[in-house]
Design a protein around this nucleic acid. Structure first.
Lengths: 245, 245
DNA sequence: CGAGTCGTTCCATTAAATGGAACTTGAGTT
DNA sequence: AACTCAAGTTCCATTTAATGGAACGACTCG
């Protein structure tokens, strides 16, 4: 195949929890001849797609890659609008907030707002999560039709569970999880879309379970909902469901 | 040359304030035949390096690129340590904070912490700044020797000015700017390095000029300095200069 | 409709990627 | 210091992909 696909495969290796790569890591992970791996990493280095850590043989993403997530954010009016809402909510309640997008069965945070409370959930922006196992992911999956979800998760064991959860999300207008991915951590998420560009984002607040009761949670949902409703109206997102608390 | 360099050139186009690219943008900016540009963007799309916005012909960085800045952060102990310090300072004083790295004559933020004050400086993470025109950049340039700076800025008009500013930074142990890049915005920055990996980062706080007097500024410098000194000690950064206020 | 712009496809030419093997480099041993 | 093993780089003939001019579709606007 072309170098470009190999380069993309190398970059994908950083996705999981692999902080750096050597030539032999690439050989092992991608099964390519080591002559190729060596030249590929060299070419990527020279293109600033990779850089070595110190003078070791370990590679990490290059400086060129650092700006791109920001360019992605700037490309989208929706993300900008959503960020304002979550930044406001995060500052008000002191909890960490995110904006996430879905990519197939995964979600990635594209913007984060660190909480200010002494006990706060630490931001994990840029780490991919399975969409069906997080509130933010389910808030985005709920926007798909029942059939689309079935197609996406065909043959997946958790499909029936997921369908139930999603219809609840569709009815309520928000997604909620309590100590699901991380013990002691709850999350609320509301999604909104821009029909002109087919983008959908999730507005999410993550907080320590012990710190927030139902009343506090509903207050935050209302804050996100108000902002999201405003965005939905301005951009013409007719599929938006105002949360019922 | 190879596709890889062309792909890197395309990605570089997003650096400035170009939120999206079309085939003809690429033709214009890079001067390549449009047949090549068309195929290149197609290949990059298929490798998830780019994606189209909605069903238009405009391209933005692809989902693959969103995780890479996070991988960069995870690759570096220094960035992690520095982030803790700036997050703490940002939460305490309510102003926006950054961690930045230098790349030649430019600096890029790799992590940001939004302030919580009603009047706060909005984060511009991922946007490149000229190193010599920002406090964060000068705090990093000051770590280079006098000669290295001369070599880097050879033939540059602002070199004599810069040299003076840098020796002040070296003596004080911190960089300060008042309404330099943006009217009404001041910044303080302190750099620290990891000698094992040759990395240097800048810890920076950005705040509205009108909100902070000299005493308040010195308090924040002290907070950053305390954290930076701890990092310098733990990692063995012998070049670190404790700020004199 | 017709002119203009933009994007894609076609094809022969040219240039780069490939992978096996030989060769270096560096860390740890005896 | 010589030895060994693993990791990385370079070499070279072969295969494969990139290149760019030109022709072809798709859209927009007067």
């Amino acid at each position: 195949m072309s170098v470009l696909n190999n380069a993309a495969d190398v970059l994908r290796c950083f996705g999981n929890d692999c902080p750096d790569l050597t030539v032999s890591d690439v050989v092992r992970l991608l099964g390519m001849p080591k002559a190729n791996a060596s030249r590929l990493l060299k070419a990527m280095r020279e293109a600033n797609m990779l850089e070595t850590i110190g003078d070791s043989h370990r590679h990490r993403p290059g400086r060129l890659m650092l700006d791109l997530a920001a360019a992605y954010r700037r490309s989208s009016l929706l993300i900008g609008r959503a960020s304002e809402v979550v930044a406001e909510a995060s500052a008000t309640y002191g909890h960490t907030g995110y904006i996430s997008v879905r990519d197939g069965k995964e979600v990635t945070a594209v913007a984060d707002f660190q909480g200010t409370n002494a006990l706060r959930v630490v931001s994990n922006i840029g780490r991919r999560l399975p969409a069906h196992l997080s509130a933010t992911g389910r808030s985005l999956l709920a926007r798909l039709g029942e059939e689309a979800v079935h197609a996406l998760y065909a043959g997946h064991g958790a499909l029936t569970d997921l369908s139930e959860q999603l219809s609840k999300v569709r009815h309520q207008g928000f997604a909620y999880s309590s100590q699901e991915a991380t013990p002691g951590v709850d999350a609320i998420a509301i999604s909104v879309a821009d029909p002109r560009t087919d983008e959908a984002v999730s507005l999410c607040i993550v907080y320590p379970h012990a710190l927030v009761d139902t009343k506090g949670r509903d207050e935050m949902i209302a804050a996100l909902a108000k902002g999201a409703a405003r965005i939905a109206e301005d951009l013409g997102d007719s599929a938006f469901v105002a949360p019922r608390i």
